[in-house]
Design a protein around this nucleic acid. Structure first.
Lengths: 141, 141
DNA sequence: TTATGTGCAAAGCGTTTGCACTTTA
DNA sequence: TAAAGTGCAAACGCTTTGCACATAA
C-alpha cells in the first residue's frame, strides 16, 4: 500500500516557483530564499523534502554538481514530454563555474561503462572536475 | 623565497606508515587510527596537513572518491618511477563500493573535453556515479 | 630564538534527522 | 482524529581553520 500524500500550501508555493524557473537550475536554498522574500515562512528542510517527492514523481530533475556545491534541480513540464535531461556537468576547480556538456560524444562513456564494466552510470550525479578555458588562459599570463 | 620545512616525528611516522601500505589506498583517518593504535598521539588534522605536503612533493597521490566519502591517498615510491596514476574511479550509489577503472578507453574523454570544450580534466577528482554489477543483479531478484 | 609543526575544539558546507507542532482529508 | 507535512535545532561526515602550545634547527 502506498503512502497517502497531502496537497499542501508549501507544495503549491514550490510548484509555482518551479514553474517560473523553467529551463533554469535552482537549488533548495534558492527556492527557500525566494519564497521567504515573498512572505512565506518555508524552511529549507521542507524544500528538500518536497523536492525529493517531485523527483520521484518525475516532474523535477536533480543534478549533483560536485562536492561542497549544492545540488541543482530543474523543473520538467509534464505537458512537454521533452526528457533530454541526461546531460553531464563539469566543474572548474579554479573559479567554481558549472559547465553543461553536450552529451552526444561524452555519453559514449556510458555505453563503455555498461558493456565493459557492467556499471550503470548515473549522469546526473557525475561531475567532471578540471580547469575551464578561461582559467587555463589566466595561468599562462 | 620558499618556506623552510622541518623534519618532524609525525612526518616520519606517516612516511613509515605510507611505505607499509604501498599499492593500497588509505584515508587520512586510516593513517591516524593506525598510528594512534600503535602508541602515537597524532591527530587527523596533522595527517591532512602532512599529506598535503607529500602531495606537493609528488610522493603521494590524492584521489577524491565522491561526495561524502573520504579522500584516498596512495604512496608513490620515488625509487620506482611508475606514474600510471591517472586512473578513474567509480562509486556505486547502492553499496558505496569504490571501483577502479582502467583508463585506456575512458581517457578518451579527457581528449574530447580538452579539444572540444577546452576543459582540462582532473581524473583524480572525477568520480563516476552509478550502480555496480552486483547491485544491478540484486535489483532483478 | 624564531619559524614551523601540532592537537584540540570549533567552524564550514550542503543535507538529513529528531521531535514537537500544525495541517490535511 | 489519524496520517502526513512542517520548521527549528542539532547531527552528519569530511575537511579546514583558529589558537595556544610544542618542537626543530
Amino acid at each position: 500500500m502506498e503512502k497517502r500524500t497531502y496537497n499542501t500550501k508549501r507544495q503549491n508555493e514550490l510548484l509555482d516557483y518551479l514553474k517560473s524557473t523553467k529551463g533554469q537550475h535552482v537549488t533548495a536554498q534558492d527556492a527557500a530564499s525566494y519564497l521567504r522574500k515573498n512572505g512565506s515562512s518555508i524552511g529549507v528542510t521542507t524544500v528538500y523534502r518536497q523536492f525529493e517527492k517531485f523527483v520521484d514523481d518525475g516532474i523535477l530533475n536533480k543534478f549533483e554538481t560536485g562536492e561542497g556545491y549544492a545540488a541543482c534541480y530543474e523543473y520538467m513540464d509534464p505537458e512537454e514530454h521533452v526528457h533530454d535531461h541526461d546531460c553531464f556537468h563539469a566543474r572548474c576547480e579554479k573559479c567554481g563555474k558549472l559547465i553543461h556538456l553536450d552529451c552526444s560524444v561524452i555519453s559514449e562513456i556510458e555505453k563503455h561503462l555498461l558493456e565493459k564494466h557492467k556499471f550503470m552510470l548515473n549522469p546526473n550525479r557525475t561531475v567532471f572536475y578540471g580547469v575551464c578555458k578561461e582559467c587555463m588562459a589566466e595561468v599562462r599570463i
